Computed example of a mutant assay.
Amino acid sequence: MIAKGMVHLCVWGLLAVFAAFSASAQGFAGMASDAEGFSLPRPNPEFSFPEDHGPHPDFRIEWWYVTANLTAEDGRSYGIQWTLFRSATRPEAPADTAKGWASPQIWFGHAGLTNADQHFTAQTFARGGIGQAGATAAPFAAWINDWAMTGRAGPGQDALDRLDLSAHGADFSYALKLEAQGPILRQGLDGYSVKSPRGQASYYYSQPHYDVQGTVHLPGGPVVVTGQAWLDREWSSQPLAPSQTGWDWFSLHLADGAKLMVYRLRDADGPDFIPASFVGPDGAARYLPDGDVELTPIKTTRVAGRDVPTHWRVIWADGGLDIETEPVNTQAWMDLNVPYWEGPVRVTGTHQGQGYLEMTGYE
């Protein structure tokens, strides 16, 4: 009876944590509402790989995040998303030996699969101390329950260069192989990503150069696909500024081989904050500070009972880029504990391409 009661208390405590997360208008960023006792990002980070591909328990929150634009043999388009989140209920020092339910680490995963007519979502939760979820740097693996991102890099390769990726929901699943065709991209100022003029920041890098092949499974059966993928790694202990209500984030693969990441952090009390990064067709990377890129919504769509800006114009005047993005499926709403819009997009204008758009805070 005592053991059963303890399990119930743990479960209810876990549910209370997730309920608090989902109540935040800032979505994922609101999960890090108190940084006291946790490590904070500092300028001029010195990343160490493969160690930094693994978890950072002295920081409040981090995630491993993959999106992929895929095409079947018949030309039909698909998009997938895979995210593993780690959030700590209290600071954990390197010597912390808390195990089982006493571990402060909470994990949850989101997955999605989208085509022009359908949008599937799934979420799963776990506590890291009992082995249900976690991440290791070498060999690289990140998992939650039976969802997994597993490294299979060879000698001399970065641990993220070759990955197996899988997840499933009630009506979908996917199993994909990712192979990097270029180097890791450090976002922001050499990996120090400032989120507002007030100084909130994260450590942030990406691997935007994956080629993908594999299979997606839908109610109609399996579909063989190929395409491109983008991985983000980010960790911090700081929430957004109190007046920042959410973000609109793009990762774009352009047809000439260039890559563009840009996001708008919406601010109720002042101008929005819009940093970006660009990798040219020659592989040269460039940080674009706030103000260099313009993001303008040009069309809203009624989605899940709310108006969401699903079509956008993106202008980087100094780079000769003036594009518009259109979603593959306007109804790509992730109706999860933390609700948000996320789905594949197509790019037209001065550049052609494809990519992903994520929008939080439209609640």
Rank of each mutant, 00 (worst) to 15 (best):
M1N: 11
I2Y: 13
G5W: 13
H8T: 15
A16V: 09
V17T: 14
F18Y: 13
S22F: 00
A23D: 12
A25Y: 14
Q26T: 12
F28S: 10
A32D: 04
S33Y: 10
S33T: 09
P41H: 07
P41L: 04
P43Y: 07
N44K: 15
P45A: 12
F47D: 12
S48G: 10
P55S: 12
I61W: 09
I61L: 14
E62Y: 06
E62F: 11
Y65F: 15
E73R: 14
G75K: 01
G75Q: 09
G75C: 08
Q81V: 09
T83L: 13
L84W: 04
F85M: 03
R86E: 04
T89L: 15
R90W: 07
E92Q: 15
A93P: 11
P94L: 06
G100P: 08
W107Q: 15
F108E: 09
G112H: 09
D117M: 10
T124F: 05
G128K: 10
I130G: 07
A141M: 13
A142V: 12
N145T: 11
D146L: 11
W147T: 04
G151C: 07
P155C: 09
Q157E: 15
A159W: 03
A159N: 04
D164S: 14
G169Y: 03
A170H: 11
A175Y: 01
L176G: 00
K177Q: 14
L178W: 00
Q181S: 07
G182D: 08
P183S: 07
Q187L: 15
L189Y: 11
G191Q: 01
Y192V: 01
Y192P: 01
S193L: 02
K195D: 00
S202L: 03
Y204W: 05
Q207R: 15
P208K: 07
T215H: 08
L218H: 01
P219A: 05
P222H: 00
V225W: 05
G227T: 02
A229P: 01
D232Y: 03
R233Y: 01
Q244H: 05
D248S: 10
W249L: 02
H253Q: 08
L260D: 02
R264K: 13
G270C: 11
F273H: 12
I274S: 02
S277R: 03
F278Q: 04
P289T: 04
V293T: 03
T296A: 12
P297F: 12
P297I: 08
T301A: 14
R302A: 14
R306P: 00
T310I: 06
V314Q: 08
I315Q: 07
G320R: 06
W333Y: 05
N337A: 15
Y340D: 02
E342D: 04
T350D: 01
T350V: 12
G361E: 04
